[in-house]
Simulated scan of single mutants.
Amino acid sequence: MARERLRLAAVAAIFLIVGAAGGFWAHRPVDAGRTGPLSTVDIGFAQDMSVHHEQAVLLARTLPADAGPLIRGVAERIVLAQTAEIAQLRGWLQLFDLPLSTDQPMHRMGHEHTGHGAPMPGSASTSEITRLAGMHGTEAEVLFLQLMIRHHRGGVEMAQTAFNTGSAPAVTRTALEMVNEQGNEIGQMTALLTARQGQPLPFP
């Protein structure tokens, strides 16, 4: 029995490694020829979404070490996927010698958000992140899921705008992938939150 459990654990580990590698290469930077010229919306999307992703990575890394393996797995997948996407988004900007960030978030994408103490939709405030860092166990898991679900909903909104109004094929394709991927993760995290008797935070 112990040998069988060990075999199953090894198989699961292999699938996790293969899946992670697949996720990374799916988001590798696109060359300039395929990206094409960037519109104002494309530039804003690349600048704003990379910053938005940075906070998702921060939230995932702020999750306390005593969180359960299911939630830690969610956090680790977010770090891997969104770090790769940050490299892709900023790779486009570097290809065209454009600034990696802007002092007017969401301006190029046609609107601004100021809710939750942050300029982009779904972003967590400094006090929310600090509170997460001080929590433990199930309490930390619930807040992490609440913050990340809201954060993903904001990301989906931003990506949907880029898909609808962007022009470069690589940008609109990536935006659609983000809508699908983060939408799926919202469903998974909502189920985990419900299992812990938690409720999603209001959005926006």
Rank of each mutant, 00 (worst) to 15 (best):
F96M: 11
I186D: 07
L100I: 13
E141S: 10
G137E: 05
S167T: 15
L8D: 13
H151I: 03
Q160F: 06
Q94K: 09
E112R: 14
I186N: 02
L16Q: 14
D103H: 08
Q82Y: 10
R77P: 00
A87Q: 05
E157R: 02
H151C: 03
A10W: 11
I129Q: 05
A75W: 07
L201Y: 04
S39V: 13
H27R: 14
Q199Y: 05
S50G: 07
L143W: 00
A21V: 15
W25E: 03
L176P: 05
L6P: 03
V142Y: 07
T83N: 08
Q88E: 15
P99C: 10
G22K: 00
P69M: 09
F96W: 13
R196F: 04
P105W: 05
R131Y: 05
D97Q: 12
H152N: 08
R77M: 11
S39M: 11
A21I: 15
V74I: 15
H111E: 14
S101R: 10
A195I: 02
Q160Y: 01
G73P: 04
H27S: 14
L70D: 12
T172R: 11
A20E: 08
T130L: 13
T35N: 01
G115F: 06
M178Y: 09
G33Q: 13
G134I: 03
V57D: 02
I71F: 06
I86G: 01
T62R: 09
M49Q: 09
H152T: 08
A21T: 14
T172C: 01
T102P: 04
F144W: 12
A140Q: 03
I14A: 14
T138K: 10
N180H: 10
Q188P: 02
G36E: 06
A46E: 07
T114H: 12
R131M: 12
T40P: 01
L143C: 08
E54Y: 02
T138I: 14
G73S: 10
D97L: 08
A124P: 00
M178G: 09
A56S: 12
A20K: 00
L145N: 07
V179N: 00
F24W: 06
I149H: 02
A32W: 01
G187F: 01
M178N: 06
A32S: 13
T174Y: 01
G137C: 12
P105Q: 03
N164F: 01
E4P: 04
G23L: 12
A133K: 11
M109E: 04
G68C: 10
F163A: 15
P119D: 02
A10V: 10
V79G: 02
G134W: 09
R7E: 15
L201V: 11
R5L: 15
I129S: 06
A162M: 07
G36F: 11
L59S: 00
Q197K: 11
A118T: 09
V41P: 08
Q146P: 04
A124N: 07
R72N: 05
G183Q: 06
